[in-house]
Write a protein that binds this DNA or RNA. Sequence first.
DNA 1: CGAGCGTTTGACCGGACTCAACGCATGTGG
DNA 2: CCACATGCGTTGAGTCCGGTCAAACGCTCG
Lengths: 244, 244
Amino acid sequence: MTKPSSTDRPNPLQVACSSCNLRELCLPVGFSGSELERLDGMVATRRSVKRGDALFRSGDAFEAVYAVRTGFFKTQVSSEDGRDQVTGFQMAGELLGLDGIVSDHHTCDAVALEDSQVCVIPYAELEALSREFGELQRQFHKIMSREIVRDQGVMLLLGSMRAEERLAAFLLNLTQRLQARGFSPTSLVLRMTREEIGTYLGLKLETVSRCFSRFQEDGVLEVKLKHIRILDLAALRKMVNSPC
Amino acid sequence: MTKPSSTDRPNPLQVACSSCNLRELCLPVGFSGSELERLDGMVATRRSVKRGDALFRSGDAFEAVYAVRTGFFKTQVSSEDGRDQVTGFQMAGELLGLDGIVSDHHTCDAVALEDSQVCVIPYAELEALSREFGELQRQFHKIMSREIVRDQGVMLLLGSMRAEERLAAFLLNLTQRLQARGFSPTSLVLRMTREEIGTYLGLKLETVSRCFSRFQEDGVLEVKLKHIRILDLAALRKMVNSPC
DNA sequence: CGAGCGTTTGACCGGACTCAACGCATGTGG
DNA sequence: CCACATGCGTTGAGTCCGGTCAAACGCTCG
């Protein structure tokens, strides 16, 4: 390895929120033209992360938050004895790294599940700009609050749902977010393994696999390894709301 | 009931962060005298909440965040079919209501487990003041980030721990927070029922009760209903880090 | 084409849940 | 002050869902 890491490629082209097609999903939601230009100065750099590589790891110094531009990430925390828990999956337009603010160090790993690219948002600059720019402040607070609400939902899932309900809720959440990005609401390609799904849902990979098989038997899904097609959306929705 | 609700008692006395004995645990951590005075203007009112009453409920309009001054709360979310999940327990100095920022409405219930009192921090004022006052901004971001990190820990617990480990982790977390408030690190009074503990830990109340009994048999705890004494702290710690 | 990883499926096991009964503490009203 | 009601907690017996262990299959990619 004599080449510099893949993570510091400069890529000066189009590092600008104002010309980014994700601006309706990302930090600058609802910003006007002049405001967007001020963001462009803050989001100065991109960073590429190869599949399997970490954007940051637990213990790393916290310097910036990251907006996913392309690709797909998982975040995970580990207990002292080695067990780990996937705490979320992040796709284009979603923010990574908010966990690091409290202690100046990250408390989870963010790992790319496919070759990805993120916008680097230095936290000091985000703080400064949002102090003089109320709309940015408000938007940033909303993003942190959204993360807290999302976590509440995951706790509900982990604490009170059965295996099939968890998987159904997971698939519905994924497709909903994909749909907001212009993808089909009924067909998706999983970027993560059965084990990663299981570690997210508090299940073993065999249980995840069996649930997929049962969904297929019941005509709810068509499952071809990572390719999933939802055949009966209503049934899937019903599983989440009314168990059994 | 002709008297006004207990929640709008004015209590003008000592509504001031600068003279609050919780300022080292609460929002104004690390603030100097002059800065504290500026906070005093923001935290204008108190609110009393009787045991069993809600500070806010899911769906309520979001207007303020709340700092617990005295007492004890639980927060809980409900699924559409009525199951609910306790997402946390809050004691003096901890903030409630951050979930409401994203949608202008609260997404969980906050219920007092004993007669309590909170400081009302209008969100609009918090936003404005933290814009011109960097230390407050930073502190508020840290509090939101801490909440996100805490949620990661709960996910790890719910997703990967066995019943006894969950209860051990819960007790260690409680005593640690109580110790930071000057209480004994080995003796505590639970403010919540077995069912509330279970709903927090993703267990049924019978399982919680059985775990308490087993801990007592093993000489790890002394359990007298809500009164818990930790007899073997090392054993409790060991249960969390290395299962079985 | 072969190695290795991811996935599926089966058989069995066990920890947590369910259902049920009972005990105990608290508080209320006679 | 006691009788009673009620809510909370404990304990037991039996069940079942998901975990564990194991084997085989089939992509994917050198």
